[in-house]
Design a protein around this nucleic acid. Structure first.
Lengths: 256, 256
DNA sequence: GAGTCAAGAATTGTATACGATATTCGTGCG
DNA sequence: CGCACGAATATCGTATACAATTCTTGACTC
């Protein structure tokens, strides 16, 4: 019955108030579901608007709906899923307004955080960032866009962690997660997807302990990111199913 | 299969992603427990560290533990309660380090938000703020400290709402909530508890559409608030129970 | 043929049962 | 007298059962 040998994935990642040391206490069971879904959403494996039925998720992760429900609630609090009463959970679809606000919040917080990081960064921190940079580069080069986006977010979070402000780090983490959804919805230029250069410059500024440079680089990096989005002011997008399907080369042979 | 016409209903009430209008759909059952506990914590009716047993809360609110559990999870995400696996839920006890970080985050976000509010505030907004001010004053004057603290927080949130940045408003809301806990733990001067004057000046600056003034006033207001706290660097407080009980005039007659 | 309505199916909401873990308290030993 | 150990109790963790709601589908009417 209790055959669930749910291997603890990564207790440190779950940004929640749980006083639990990694190895000692069993990391709450829903964290596996939470992390799995989160990764899937952030890496764009699950598109915004996708329904997330409790039964199905329970089957997939071999847990009861109780656990799934907890995970979904946590994701809802992160604004990665939308809980609609009596209807179920759906991958969130941030509006363009929300998208703008996310980037405005990032523009306020992250430059400051980058400056802080540049002030206190030690060699070990720089090493960590450079390793991050490599991972990112590799994922991007391998064409794994989804992971590249996730890693890009994790890079920003890593900077915040170096700054040593855990609350601001939580904010950055949340904002980056939501940015991932925003990118999935509103990204326009697929070619310029990863300005890894900007990240590299950022690391250099932090390595040189130049808070001012780091602050400015982060600001312009975020502006660049924002400029890659299509956040024009038509709030509703009445895309017709026919338009979408018509514009895609359909595999002839099956269907009408 | 519609493309959800997700009109942002009211993200201000419960800080969670629920597309639900107050009256129409049943507002998820746990929100009653959530709000009740939150008020009790923010108004210092429940002291930090207090255990919150699921059964007891279920009896009080006449719901099953399932509901209580959801409410507690939501509160944990707000960092108002601490969930310790297999041990239960406790009202959070922010450390001094956390307290400092909360106020550093507020010092980063709120001045900017106040400036924004001053830019866009309309007469109706000013009226709202002045009414807030009165409520605060009244509660303070009536000696209801708990509510005064809550209202003070709501004032800051109201400013953020005027600024029209819902995400930053969420941040401010969370930070103010945590500040309430911090005040419960580390407030030192009980007399100067409410610098209602600072709030009044803030409203004036916003009313005059003076972003620069509003920004500076908020900055100094937060500095003042912080200076009222005892956040010295001894991380652990080895207060002995005997000290506390010994220093209080005990009602003689009962007990040993 | 389009629209409406209702019965059935599917999914979510809540309560409860039961196993697992922690805490308490009594007992015995040093 | 203090401490260690173990049974009893209390509380939490998870699964499951059942109720409530929504969605689907088919028939019926206009």
């Amino acid at each position: 019955m209790s055959s669930q040998n749910a291997l603890p994935p990564k207790p440190s990642d779950v940004g929640l108030a749980l006083a639990v040391e990694p190895g000692k206490r069993p990391p709450v069971r829903w964290s596996a579901v939470y992390l799995g879904l989160r990764d899937a959403i952030l890496s764009h494996a699950l598109a915004p608007g996708t329904k997330l039925p409790e039964d199905e998720l329970g089957d997939i992760y071999s847990v009861s709906r109780t656990i799934v429900r907890s995970a979904l609630q946590a994701l809802a609090h992160d604004r990665l899923v939308n809980l609609e009463p009596n209807r179920g959970a759906f991958v969130a679809k941030p509006t363009k307004l929300e998208a703008r606000e996310v980037f405005e919040a990032r523009a306020l917080i992250e430059p400051k955080v980058a400056g802080l990081a540049a002030e206190v960064a030690k060699p070990a921190d720089i090493g960590l960032l450079r390793r991050h940079l490599e991972d990112e580069h590799r994922a991007m080069h391998d064409g794994r866009d989804g992971e590249a986006v996730v890693l890009s977010g994790r890079f920003h979070v890593a900077i915040a962690e170096i700054a040593g402000q855990s609350i601001l780090t939580d904010f950055v983490r949340g904002l980056c997660s939501r940015s991932s959804l925003i990118i999935a919805l509103y990204w326009r230029r697929r070619d310029t997807i990863c300005e890894s250069h900007a990240h590299a410059a950022l690391v250099d500024a932090i390595a040189k302990n130049s808070p001012k440079d780091a602050t400015e680089l982060m600001t312009s990096h975020l502006v660049d990111l924002l400029s890659g989005l299509d956040l024009s002011d038509r709030p509703a997008e009445p895309k017709r199913l026919a338009d979408i399907l018509g514009s895609i080369a359909r595999p002839d042979g099956i269907g009408t």
